[in-house]
Amino acid sequence: MFEGYLPQILAGAWLTMQLAFFSLLLGLVFGLIGAAGQFSRYRIIRRITILFITSICGMPELLVLFIIYFGGTALVTYLAGHYVDVSSFVSGVLGLALIFGAYASQVFRSAFLAVPFGQSEAAHALGLSRWQIFKNIQLPQAWRHALPGLGNLWLVLLKDTALVSLIGLADLMNKTQVAISTTQKPFLFYFTAALIYLVLTSFSQICMKKLNMGANRHLA
């Protein structure tokens, strides 16, 4: 039925998963940095962070990816003074992570705000350092508040990976199009792709439910 293209499509799905996974890791880091920026003591840093986040969230994802893909190499080359290659995969991960991070910083921000300030004060009074307070008091609790929001963003991220086919990555979407170009069966292959995405998103949702239960087990 798939005229020999199924292995290729599964290979594409594998690349999609890798992309999503690396983007998630980097995106979480970006998100934490973005949240920290919004809590900064300096107004200028707060302003710049918010401007940056609003810009990323306001532009179409495709546009952000294009800007990173074409602009990234140009910028890095300019900064380094000699040619540096930013591969499609890295551009894709970077772009997706920036988008994820921009939204995640909002999630983190409200999650940290949800941790009562009195706890930090108490910890401070006990002589804990700022880093200790962050690591041992704020982060574990904020994490629990942030999980549902991050779960939704992960689903968005998984679906956004489809856009990297437009910057030349051999992901699920790209492989689907390649298969269609020889078999001329658009419905069959796009529907198969849709089902694979459905499997990925549903599986994620199940995992998220488990994760959520784990994070909240002390409340049960």
Partner: peptide, 8 residues
Amino acid sequence: RGTPLLVQ
């Protein structure tokens, strides 16, 4: 909600 808009 489970599939990318591009696929749709």
